[in-house]
């Protein structure tokens, strides 16, 4: 294993050294293919990001795929209603590993302004794990770009070996989650209890 000092010294001499892990992550993080999947208002900002002014192509992520089978990243852009939640989980299940989720906007994080609604899911992380949350209603395109860069950093840090290796390299980590069913008053189950723990609020 080369240390960082020697590495930079070598690169000054025109010799690039790398590890398999680094080049694998470098390739992955610069070609994220998002699922072209808009739910509500935030989807318009998502489209705006891929258009000329904000130009998501600079990050190698402009290839919006209509099929979950070809996508690495799901941008949950907008309010997830209870009627839509099973479909969102199913789409997530259909995506191949490694897969990532950005929860875009207040609604996808927590229900947002529509939290009081009887048909609104209070955050998509009740059913699927989320990698990056972006607040905002809707978040500005710059915020989505920031989320992309955060995700790229996260991918770049992922390990292929050892104790803390990435979830997609481990066989004991689930890659599919239970699809909720429509019930008489609510979804059944209302949340994925293994994946999601309610936040504990300590009031002083």
């Amino acid at each position: 294993m080369l240390d960082d000092g020697l590495k930079s010294e070598l690169s000054k001499q025109g010799i690039v050294t790398t590890t398999f892990e680094e080049i694998y992550n470098w390739g992955r993080k610069n070609s994220i293919w998002p699922l072209g999947f808009g739910l509500a208002c935030c989807a318009i900002e998502m489209i705006a990001v891929s258009m000329a002014r904000y130009d998501l192509a600079r990050f190698g992520a402009e290839v919006f795929r209509p099929s979950p089978r070809q996508a690495d990243l799901m941008i949950v852009a907008g309010t997830v209603t209870k009627k839509m939640a099973p479909q969102v989980v199913r789409l997530y299940n259909q995506m191949p590993e490694p897969k990532y989720v950005i929860a875009m906007g207040a609604c996808a994080i927590s229900g947002g302004p529509f939290k009081q609604g009887y048909n609104v899911l209070k955050g998509i992380d009740r059913f699927i794990p989320v990698d990056v949350h972006i607040p905002g209603c809707p978040p500005r395109p710059e915020a989505l770009i920031h989320a992309f860069m955060t995700l790229q950093e996260k991918i770049g840090r992922q390990k292929l070996q050892g104790e803390n290796r990435a979830p997609h390299t481990r066989s004991d980590m689930p890659s599919e989650f239970e699809v909720p069913q429509y019930g008489a008053h609510d979804l059944t189950p209302t949340k994925n209890t293994q994946e999601w723990v309610p936040p504990v609020i300590v009031r002083s």
Binding site: A40, T81, M84, N119, V120
Partner: peptide, 23 residues
């Protein structure tokens, strides 16, 4: 329909007139 039914009308009946404006 209904995949984006987010209860705009119900929420508006619970909050003030002006509070509905951003909705």
């Amino acid at each position: 329909f209904g995949y984006l039914h987010r209860n705009h009308e119900k929420i508006a009946e619970q909050i003030s007139y002006l509070g509905t404006m951003p909705y």
